[in-house]
Write a protein that binds this DNA or RNA. Structure first.
Length: 333
DNA sequence: CCTTTTCCATGGTAGGTATC
DNA sequence: GATACCTACCATGGAAAAGG
């Protein structure tokens, strides 16, 4: 069979039918799924949503497209490839749907600015290459007040479809800004120290080790099986995170060899002056530090060798829940 | 030629499905 | 119902291609 077509789109159409199956597989030739997905991606026939695409069409709708040039979609996609960054500009694509997590007009204004930066090549691939530079760019925008803030939080979305089947007690509103807790599945017992939420940590290259430890605590180590390992790792993660903050924020008041408790409080205080955590949480940190052996014991060494360490899993969970916010902030600095 | 954009291999998770 | 697979999907960053 031979057929000549000049139009690329037409060829793609034919290939699409021929290779991805049209009549229950009749006439399909063997492309493996990788080849298929490559093709499907190239032609854009995939059902998957493309963030840049979505953004472009929304900007078009409200007439906020950059006045000159086209948006380099791959760069926009690259910038917004992680939920952590999408949250910062006020969107999410969790559950395969594009949604705003902040007031729409504020988000669109921010997106318009980003689109314009990219379209005019003020920002290029170089500025969105890796996580560090993405952060830099977003921080820049934040400093200029471009990004939506807590003030743009969504009101309770009206639950127009009262699903009868589900008796979901907590309305899913978007709580205070940063870590949007996707869904607290309290149906299941918590098996690991860190719950399976998206905490919105932007993992940079320098945080590889932190990420490894975090992942072990979130996915690998079971509370009932490895309480000691978890306790020690938790302590390590706390310390590494705080050290990261001290280094990145260039805190002069403390040095790496100070006791963890001191470093914790210093970081919390600094975060408070930056307006990243509120006063109440600062107080919580201040109090908790003296109460818990894991933290108040000066060095990890002492802690590991302590004979009366017998961490209970609910104790560990409470500890994590107390410090999770702080850790996330410290990592995101 | 160098710079910018797009592609894609890799290493990983979530979530479904078959099996006991 | 619990467990062990299996598959689809995702983020990342280096490689390849396109643009100038």
């Amino acid at each position: 069979m031979c057929r000549v077509e000049s139009d690329r789109d037409k060829i793609d159409e034919i290939l699409y039918r021929r290779h991805t199956g049209s009549q229950g597989g009749v006439g399909q030739s063997n492309w493996d799924d990788r080849m298929k997905s490559t093709f499907v991606n190239r032609t854009g026939k995939g059902g998957k949503l493309n963030v840049a695409d979505e953004i472009e069409s929304r900007l078009k709708l409200v007439g906020l497209m950059p006045s000159r040039g086209r948006i380099p979609r791959s760069n926009l996609n690259r910038l917004l490839s992680a939920e952590a960054f999408r949250h910062r500009v006020g969107i999410t694509i969790a559950k395969g749907r594009f949604e705003f997590t902040r007031k729409e007009d504020a988000v669109l204004k921010a997106l318009a600015r980003i689109a314009d930066d990219l379209a005019r090549r003020r920002k290029t691939l170089d500025d969105v290459w890796d996580v560090d530079r993405k952060l830099e760019y977003l921080d820049e925008l934040e400093a200029e007040g471009i990004l939506p803030t807590a003030a743009d939080a969504l009101q309770l979305p009206k639950r127009e479809k009262p699903k009868p089947a589900k008796s979901d007690p907590e309305p899913e509103f978007f709580p205070n800004p940063k870590p949007i807790v996707v869904k607290a599945s309290r149906l299941q017992k918590r098996l690991t120290l860190i719950p399976h939420h998206d905490y919105g940590v932007a993992w940079t290259g320098r945080l590889q080790r932190h990420k490894d430890i975090w992942n072990e605590l979130q996915y690998k180590l079971r509370l009932e099986e490895h309480p000691n390992a978890i306790a020690v790792l938790c302590r390590v993660l706390l310390e590494l995170s705080v050290d990261n903050y001290i280094k990145q924020a260039k805190l002069a008041a403390v040095v790496e060899n100070d006791p963890l408790a001191k470093k914790l409080v210093a970081s919390a205080e600094n975060l408070h002056t930056q307006g990243k955590i509120n006063k109440r949480y600062l107080e919580v940190v201040r109090k908790a530090r003296t109460m818990d052996a894991i933290i108040s014991v000066d060095t990890l060494n002492k802690y590991v060798h302590s004979p009366n360490l017998a961490p209970a899993s609910d104790h560990l969970m409470a500890l994590w829940d107390t410090f999770a916010d702080l850790v996330v902030h410290c990592l995101n600095e």
